[in-house]
Design a protein around this nucleic acid. Structure first.
Length: 845
RNA sequence: GCCCUCGUGGUGAAAUUGGUAGACACAAAGGACUUAAAAUCCUUGCCCUUUUGGGAGUGCCAGUUCGAGUCUGGCCGAGGGCACCA
């Protein structure tokens, strides 16, 4: 029989979809829309298995929704600004633009080869001026709204490469490229005022019922809302300072105050800059603070000033003021009050500097003589030694009462503090969106007029310079604005800005006037289902949510300010790792095995070490090239396999065996299909096969249910099961109702195996409109049902009886059952539980 | 340290949400076909029993329930996130 030629068939249908623009989408108000979006890729060169998984999941959903008669928007684009292009260009003396465009073209071909139902007319690329023009307009709009500002901030500075490094580019305190010790440097940077929306970003999470809780929790923690008080501490000493503001979540413990601690970046530190000892202390502080581990293990150290702070609860009590290494300037007011008895960190500090430790909270089961000795008591308790707070429960009552007191006496007030910091968006890099700002000869900020946008990146420039290559583009930097010669800003925007609004651009990618069109946005937004890796749980997703807030600030542009109604985070694709005797990584292509246990190098048959399965990465060499696999087994088989082994939200283990099994399924299904179509051609068919109709209806029900729940691995199991069922049933010839049921089954399979099924459907389908099948209730259940018979809750037997029997009839049937009757000898049933058409539980003694 | 998630056969996993645990697949062992191999198909899978059967069993210990993989509490283990956050 004819073998299924996937190469020919897949090419044929891909060309067909292309030519007919099958997946082109436009507004149709008579239909419900469905915006299905997968995180767009960075064009690094070739697609990897992670892309295959991500885009297959999305494609199955998009095709399913289309069959359900939704108007589906399923676009694709390129997150094409970023450092890899610049680095690759620098190393190989190429142009980043050419490098990027070549990669895009390769990867686009590969994605088409996977058979994705993408509307390619909406393709966008963030490095194209027609995209970043609008980003520059947004930047200026946000600037006008006061949501963008410039300030001096500390950055990681690589003194060799003369550039700012992101936190993740600093490894063990050294620059990842140069290996130089990274310095802290103050630089003028642009910021988005994301913290202005802390409350909205936090509240927005509450309505996102279709987001994983994990992601919502991570964002909640990241935003970090805490309730407390700001307190003014009066200061005495030889400096012209009257008070210091502190933020605290525990104003109830004020009576336990024993010191004040300030950040070394606190404005007050300017009074100590000439103090030799202070300089030394500050140096000491800056030594720690690069790696996480050193921070955690760093000893709490302080520098005692000659200032004294008065306890607002009792001004007669005066405590010393320190600078301390554990206080951060960018949280709260860069100043904390220390209550050693009820904060472990304060406790350690007090022990080291011999400060007073006054207990003000006791455990509920202790009396008022309780004293903190070896560690701070931080649990809930009862207030003691605290004047008017004594006897109150804390936290709770005591915090409320203390804030009330502070407010009444104008010593402080209630304060809500957020951990979320403003988003620094300046990058000293070439391959990014230029910031549409210039400076006049006095250094004043000048906005670039909208007419002059986009400010395009200069092309084919020398990248082998120290620092930002744009700094060296003297001619490019010159710009005349309103007759005045100005100089362009040379920073480019963080590439996270590019991806913070691309989902809006997809709605109207050709609008040259503005980043999006309102009528299109109103129809398509929000994204109904967003699919991508969990690694973007915070940054990208939070920034996108911020962008929606910022764009609609004072303007109310959007029906919902939440961009992504549904979010799905898929797991990674993993593979075993291999190392040779020299501890060098080996790729799967360099090794072989005869028994699945012992692995050897192909080259010289040397035994190798098999490591744990880890996510595919070039550095571990455990990658499998999708293109190679597609050439070998076809796109449908790859799609089938990548969904088959694990639920999509979990990591999946790549297995050659599993891939082969998927390939075999495609092949054997084609053979079965040929048998079935032969049978369909037979006009004499006269036997109604009720089992087939029942099976099909049950399948439609559970298959749709699992698909909507994203349990795509289960769909694959159902397809195997269906194959097994059909190949048995087809042996019973002359099936009258074959065509009707088989065509429904084919539609179910189509989202996963679009090429194969398109080819099959042309042999079978006579319907004009192909749409997702619905169940016929009358066939959902058989006339007979299997009843589980339990004795004392344990399954003892299974009986087949007519559906909807009365309890009495059912019990009669149960007693007739041999197994059960033998159990019931010498025993008496004193109770029975009956679940209709399902179960009988006999309680016996 | 704090927060979150997850523990089911040799492996990846199902279980329609409290009602037949292990669907489906991979791997293994045995068998059929074949001169042989490949391919394909069938059987097996913990313990006791020759079989018919019976028993235990979803990380561990309790609890709720007629009935728990599923709910509650505690413990153990694995993974992930955050981390001097006042």
């Amino acid at each position: 029989m004819e073998r299924y030629n996937f190469k020919e068939v897949e090419k044929k249908w891909q060309d067909f979809w292309d030519k007919n623009k099958t997946f082109k989408s436009s507004i149709d108000k008579n239909k419900k829309k469905f915006y299905c979006l997968e995180m767009f890729p960075y064009p690094s060169g070739k697609i990897h298995m992670g892309h295959v998984r991500n885009y297959t999941i999305g494609d199955v959903l998009a095709r399913f929704k289309k069959l359900q008669n939704f108007n589906v928007l399923h676009p694709m684009g390129w997150d094409s600004f970023g450092m890899p292009a610049e680095n690759a260009a620098r190393e190989n003396n190429l142009d980043p633009k050419e490098w990027t465009e070549k990669n895009i073209s390769t990867m686009k071909t590969q994605l088409k080869r996977l058979g994705l139902s993408i509307d390619w007319d909406r393709e966008i690329s963030t490095c194209s001026p027609s995209y970043y023009k609008h980003q520059q307009i947004f930047f200026l709009e946000l600037y006008e709204k006061g949501l963008v500002y410039r300030k001096e901030n500390y950055v990681n500075w690589d003194p060799v490469d003369q550039t700012v490094l992101a936190n993740e580019q600093v490894i063990d305190g050294k620059g990842w490229r140069s290996g130089a010790q990274v310095e802290r440097k103050k630089l003028n940077q642009w910021f988005f005022n994301i913290s202005k929306f802390s409350e909205q970003l936090l509240n927005g999470l509450k309505i996102l019922s279709e987001w994983p809780n994990k992601v919502k929790t991570m964002q909640t923690n990241w935003i970090g809302k805490s309730y407390g008080a700001e307190i003014d501490f009066k200061i005495e000493g030889n400096l012209p300072i009257k008070s210091i503001k502190c933020f605290t979540t525990r104003p109830d413990t004020l009576f336990g105050l024993s010191f004040l601690a300030l950040s070394v970046d606190h404005p007050l530190s300017k009074h100590f800059e000439n103090d030799h000892k202070y300089q030394k202390f500050r140096e000491e502080c800056s030594k720690t603070g690069t790696t996480e581990e050193s921070i955690a293990q760093a000893e709490k150290i302080g520098f005692k000033t000659n200032l004294q702070a008065l306890n607002p609860m009792d001004p007669k009590i005066k405590v010393p003021v320190y600078f301390a290494n554990f206080v951060l300037m960018d949280y709260g007011f860069g100043a904390v009050f220390g209550c050693p008895a009820h904060d472990q960190r304060d406790f350690e500090f007090a022990k080291k500097y011999n400060l007073n430790i006054k207990t003000v909270v006791r455990p509920k089961d202790q009396n008022n003589t309780f004293k903190v000795k070896t560690e701070a008591f931080i649990e809930d308790g009862i207030m003691i030694n605290s004047s008017f707070l004594d006897g109150l429960k804390t936290p709770g009552e005591a915090i409320e009462k203390s804030i009330e007191h502070l407010t009444k006496n104008k010593l402080g007030k209630k304060k809500i503090n957020f951990r979320l910091k403003d988003w620094g968006i300046s990058r000293q890099r070439y391959w990014g969106c230029p910031i549409p700002i210039a400076y006049d000869k006095n250094g004043n900020i000048v906005k670039i007029p909208k007419k002059m946008l986009p400010i395009k990146l200069p092309e084919k420039i020398n990248l082998n310079t120290k620092g930002n290559p744009l700094d060296h583009q003297k001619e490019w930097r010159k710009i005349v604005i309103n007759g005045e010669i100005c100089t362009l800003d040379t920073d480019t925007l963080d590439t996270f800005v590019d991806s913070s609004w691309y989902f809006l651009r997809f709605c109207s990618p050709q609008n040259s006037e503005y980043g999006y069109s309102e009528d299109e946005i109103k129809y398509w937004m929000p994204v109904d289902q967003y699919i991508g890796g969990v690694e973007h749980a915070i940054l990208h997703l939070l920034y996108s949510r911020f962008f929606m807030q910022a764009l609609s600030f004072e303007k109310k542009n959007f029906i919902s300010t939440e961009p992504f109604q549904g979010l799905f985070t898929q797991g990674m694709v993993c593979h075993e790792t291999y190392k040779d005797e020299n501890n060098k990584w080996l790729s799967p292509e360099e090794v072989f095995t005869d028994n699945g246990k012992d692995f050897f190098t192909i080259k010289d048959k040397k035994k190798i070490i098999v490591g744990p399965s880890e996510s595919m990465s070039k550095s571990r060499k455990n990658t499998i090239d999708p293109e190679k696999i597609m050439n070998q087994y076809g796109a449908d088989a790859v799609r089938f396999f990548i969904l088959s082994d694990s639920p999509p939200e979990k990591d999946v283990q790549w297995s050659e065996q599993g891939m082969i099994a998927a390939y075999k399924f495609v092949q054997k299904f084609w053979l079965l299909h040929k048998k079935i179509t032969e049978e369909i051609k037979n006009k004499k068919r006269k036997n109604e096969n009720i089992d087939l109709t029942i099976y099909t209806n049950k399948l439609i029900q559970k298959y749709t249910f699992s698909l909507e729940k994203f349990n795509m691995n289960v769909l694959i199991a159902y397809l195997h099961e269906t194959y097994n069922f059909l190949s048995k049933e087809i042996a019973k010839l002359d099936i009258k109702n074959l065509e009707e049921n088989y065509s429904k089954i084919l539609i179910l399979m189509y989202p996963i195996l679009p090429h194969l099924i398109s080819e099959c459907m042309k042999d079978v389908h006579k319907l004009d409109v192909v749409s997702w099948p619905v169940t016929q209730k009358e066939y959902l259940e058989e006339k007979f049902v299997n009843i589980v018979v339990q004795i004392n809750g344990k399954k003892k037997s299974l009986i087949k009886v007519q559906k909807n029997l009365s309890e009495k009839e059912l019990l009669e049937n149960v007693k007739k059952d041999e197994k059960i009757s033998s159990f019931l000898k010498q025993k008496s049933v004193f109770k029975h539980i009956i679940i209709k058409n399902k179960l009988v539980n006999l309680i016996v003694k």
